[in-house]
Design a protein around this nucleic acid. Structure first.
Length: 255
DNA sequence: AGTGTATCCTGCAGGC
DNA sequence: TGCCTGCAGGATACAC
């Protein structure tokens, strides 16, 4: 039942780091669920593609947990289940110092007050990477995944292959606004359930209903009616409207 | 520095 | 019905 691959430190180190600790609060940093433990330690959970953290409770729904990979029992017997079909996730216990180092490596939180358009612009100016790749790099900005990167670029009318440093000031402003709006709306909708995602109570996220380009190749662009296209960048899909997001020769993919 | 490719793994949709 | 291929929210290591 336990899949050691999800515990990079090994089962025993994970167990001894966790047993007897008290969870002081639960939060998030980038894509990591963060359990702050007493003694300055932290339990970090990255859900990968298909991970879920499930907790029984009054409003909790029955969820298919056929791929339970790790189970943590609280002192009162309440089980916290980590279920993950593809097992790309990871759970680890970090001491205070290791957590500080990890935290430092991650880029700014896009919804924090400090993440201004000029902060974004400064980051972008230092990189010629395609903007979609830049957005997925957790060291540059934390917590943006492929869905929200594609949606934000469509909203900001920026082609995913544009070099990060090529964005002008109005474009940086539009991207900044779009990123924050999309992330807030997705949180409001409790996430994007394409297939596997569930919140801790087993509920689905409804942002999937609000997607405008992601996974919608062949459908009309909601803004101009042009057919949305799918392309590939660094082995990940990109979705775009060629008319709303011009530039960059004739890429991506073929025609 | 950045890109393409491969890897971890399972399940599902679509074509034939 | 069944077999095959391609694709999927993420992160990382590798060669170039």
């Amino acid at each position: 039942m336990i899949h050691p691959g999800l515990l990079p430190q090994g089962v025993e180190a994970f167990r001894t780091g966790l047993v007897g600790r008290r969870v002081e609060r639960v939060g998030r940093r980038g894509k990591n669920v963060l359990f702050r433990l007493d003694g300055g330690r932290a339990l970090l959970v990255n859900l990968g593609m298909t991970g879920r953290l499930l907790l029984p409770g009054p409003g909790a729904r029955e969820v298919d947990a056929r791929h339970c990979a790790v189970r943590i029992h609280f002192h009162d017997g309440t089980p916290l289940t980590y279920d993950d079909v593809r097992r790309f996730g990871a759970l680890e216990i970090l001491g205070a110092r290791a957590w500080r180092q990890r935290n430092q490596v991650l880029g700014p939180e896009p919804l924090s007050a400090g993440f201004t358009a000029s902060v974004l612009g400064r980051g972008l100016s230092r990189s010629r990477a395609p903007i979609r790749s830049w957005l997925l790099d957790q060291r540059r900005v934390a917590g943006v995944g492929n869905i929200y990167a594609n949606e934000a670029l469509w909203e900001a009318r920026i082609h995913p292959l544009r070099p990060a440093s090529s964005l002008d000031v109005p474009e940086v402003g539009r991207l900044h606004r779009a990123l924050r709006r999309i992330l807030r709306a997705a949180i409001e909708a409790r996430g994007t359930t394409l297939r596997d995602y569930r919140d801790a109570t087993g509920g689905e996220g409804s942002f999937s209903l609000l997607l405008r380009v992601y996974g919608r190749d062949g459908h009309p662009c909601p803004r101009c009616g042009t057919v949305v296209e799918r392309g590939v960048l660094s082995n990940r899909s990109i979705f775009l409207c060629r008319r709303c997001q011009p530039g960059v020769h004739n890429t991506p993919s073929s025609e």
